[in-house]
Design a protein around this nucleic acid. Structure first.
Length: 429
RNA sequence: GCCGCAGUAGUCUAGCCCGGUCUAGGAUGAGGGCCUGUCGAGCCCUUGACCCGGGUUCAAAUCCCGGCUGCGGCGCCA
């Protein structure tokens, strides 16, 4: 056993109790005959005092910042101490000494560039800010799951090594699968649709890969996709679930991660029901009225979304009813207006957080949509055949977790959110 | 991939426009010293750097060209 107590659990009521704490040396203030150590563990940072004429004092000469140590000592309440309580060290064991100087300042006096931070990532992740980000993400994912469970969803796991491209377009990473060509999944799309045809309400939180040239603060080669798919439902039902889930997540974070948000000096945007909905056509007309050169059928790229966001004056909004041609083959067209699809994007300021739609559930429609896009129906037979056996109407959404986390943390780059980001140039650490 | 900006000690930054005064300044870290309540501890001493290659010039961290790397915007992408 390496410790008797976590730092956060040490209280003034434990006065005179002998305890053992373990963690990292966060800071040392050496006053000569007395040293103040800030010790950090998973629960926080606490003060340890080392006084002359103790065994600990001799051992303290070997301390360096970020060394992993175990400290036995006596709890003493003292209003001069940061938490009103501190540990008077009796003995210190250096479990693992850190080399110095550190390639990154964990304590936070000297800010590092993001490039340095990602290279020295583990030390970066020990910083208070990143600890907050990690904990906020964990809590966000927990409330995502809980809210979906509450709505009768079931968590599933789909294959990540796949035989064909799901949607065309995006570049896939090839892998050699027992001598055959295969790919890393760019999305669980087709499999979650099939599973909705068996389980009705499913969700998955898992990795997805895209071998794109994209080099922006919003793209990763490997990202986490939070996917939802529901049977006997359309895109309005899914938007309702998304709305409800995101608001639940925001409220939970306000409740349970206020300290972490404080650390990040971030205030969550006010998200309330209903999240604004604007049709693609309205968005185009709005942009045109603002003098943007754009026509029906054009994509809403980042510059256009920035303009739209300024105009709408709302942080979070749905853009719905996109042109059918701009959407993947599985997207259902509107019955009364086939050039428009039953689809939506959830946008945070100018960033697409999620994309969803009602899905085609008739085989002949799917085959036709594949053909229109120049895709070979034969390659999709593993998917299409199940539409012969009672595939219900269904709808779903894919949410980019790291992007969503930008909204929940105030960070500006998904590479900061991802613990070990993969991008065009980064494969290690 | 394109455009813009940048690359100075382990880390962060000043200097660059207006070449010499730079023996390259500061912070932080590290080594040493003083200090019994620090809380970004303080004070003193020491330590360590101009991305690579070419060019202009009496002289290049500074100007020019090429490369590499990074950051931002865009593109590609959902």
């Amino acid at each position: 056993m390496y410790r008797t107590n976590f730092i956060a659990d040490i209280t003034p009521e434990m006065e005179q109790k002998e305890i053992v704490v373990a963690g990292w040396i966060h800071n040392i203030r050496d006053l000569g005959a007395k040293k103040f150590i800030l010790l950090r563990d998973a629960t926080g940072i606490g003060q340890v005092i080392i006084e002359r004429n103790t065994k600990a004092f001799e051992a303290s000469n070997d301390l360096s910042l970020e060394s992993a140590v175990q400290i036995r000592g006596i709890v003493k309440s003292d209003k001069r101490a940061p938490r009103g309580v501190e540990v008077h060290a009796e003995d210190i064991v250096v479990l693992s000494k850190a080399k110095s100087p550190l390639p990154l300042d964990v304590y936070g006096k000297v800010k590092a560039d993001i490039d340095t931070r990602l290279r020295e990532r583990l030390l970066d992740l020990r910083r208070e800010e990143m600890q907050a980000v990690i904990r906020i993400e964990s809590e966000a994912v927990r409330s995502f799951r809980e809210n979906l469970y509450k709505n009768r969803f079931v968590e599933i796991f789909t294959p990540k090594i796949i035989a064909t491209a799901t949607e065309g377009g995006a570049q896939l990473f090839p892998v050699i699968y027992f001598g055959k060509e295969a790919f890393l999944a760019q999305s669980p799309q087709l499999y979650k649709e099939l599973l909705a045809g068996a389980v009705e309400r499913v969700f998955e939180i898992g990795p997805a890969w895209r071998a794109e040239d994209s080099d922006t603060p919003y793209h990763l080669s490997e990202f986490i996709s939070a996917d939802i798919e529901m049977a006997f439902a359309d895109y309005n039902d899914v938007m309702g679930i998304v709305e409800d889930t995101i608001i639940t997540m925001a409220n939970k974070l306000k409740e349970k991660c206020s300290a972490e948000l404080e650390t990040l000096n971030y205030r969550l945007p006010d998200i309330s029901k209903p999240i604004k909905r604007i049709t693609y056509t309205e968005a185009i007309e709005t942009l045109q009225s603002l003098g943007v050169k754009i026509k029906f059928g054009d994509d809403l790229a980042t510059p256009e979304l920035r303009t739209l966001n300024e105009h709408l004056k709302t942080d979070l909004y749905f853009v719905i009813d996109w042109p059918a041609e701009a959407r993947p083959f599985y997207t259902k067209r509107k019955d009364n207006k086939p050039e428009i699809s039953e689809s939506f994007d959830l946008i945070f300021r100018w960033l697409e957080l999620a994309s969803g739609s009602s899905r085609n559930f008739r085989r002949e429609v799917l085959e036709n949509e594949l053909r229109v896009r120049g895709l070979n129906t034969y390659n999709f037979e593993y998917f299409l055949k199940w539409f012969d056996y009672g595939m219900p109407p269904h709808a779903g959404v894919g949410i980019g977790l790291q992007r969503l986390m930008l909204m929940f943390t105030g960070l500006q780059n998904v590479k900061e959110i991802s613990l070990f980001p993969r991008d065009k140039k980064r494969l290690v650490p």
